[in-house]
């Protein structure tokens, strides 16, 4: 079985995915962006073919979420056969500017704005009511 010189799982002819793999510990997630088998059952188990980056979902003290991406290697794997990219990774790469922005990002943004607008509206209505009552 072929194996990368840097080590890792053997590269089978099956469908591979560039996806997020959860590390960290309880109440503290930390994701690795990896290329590995695409099946759901693969997710919790080792090993990965190659790690292509990291993503920390918790903001740091400066108000940032840190994402590291090995663009060189992601480009390589994207050019290979039988490699798909998971939605989460696609969104991140879209926001990075490497790929187009994923529709899901637009959807989420729209929905957030909708919620905020609704809340603002209901708050305004409540204030108006109070003002009219008082």
């Amino acid at each position: 079985m072929p194996v990368l010189a840097t080590g890792g799982a053997p590269i089978y002819n099956s469908l591979k995915a560039i996806r997020l793999m959860r590390h960290g510990c309880a109440n503290r997630p930390f994701y690795h962006i990896v290329i590995m088998g695409s099946r759901r059952s693969n997710k919790g188990t080792y090993p990965v073919i190659e790690q292509l980056g990291t993503y920390d979902p918790l903001t740091n003290v400066h108000g940032e979420k840190l994402v590291s991406v090995n663009l060189d290697r992601i480009s390589y794997w994207m050019a290979q056969d039988k490699v798909k990219i998971a939605v989460g990774v696609k969104q991140l790469l879209g926001l990075m500017g490497f790929l187009h922005i994923h529709p899901q990002s637009y959807i989420t943004a729209w929905r957030v704005r909708a919620i905020a607008k609704r809340e603002a509206l209901s708050k305004q209505q409540a204030e108006d009511q109070e003002a009219s009552m008082g």
Binding site: T59, G63, E64, K65, L66, V67, S68, V69, N70, L71, L92, L95, M96, G97, I101, S105, Y106, T108, A109, W110, V112, R113, A116
Partner: peptide
């Protein structure tokens, strides 16, 4: 169109 997707934080991407 992405406004509001990340209130209170930004994302920093490093190659």
């Amino acid at each position: 169109a992405l406004q509001g997707i990340m209130p209170n934080f930004k994302i920093v991407f490093t190659d």
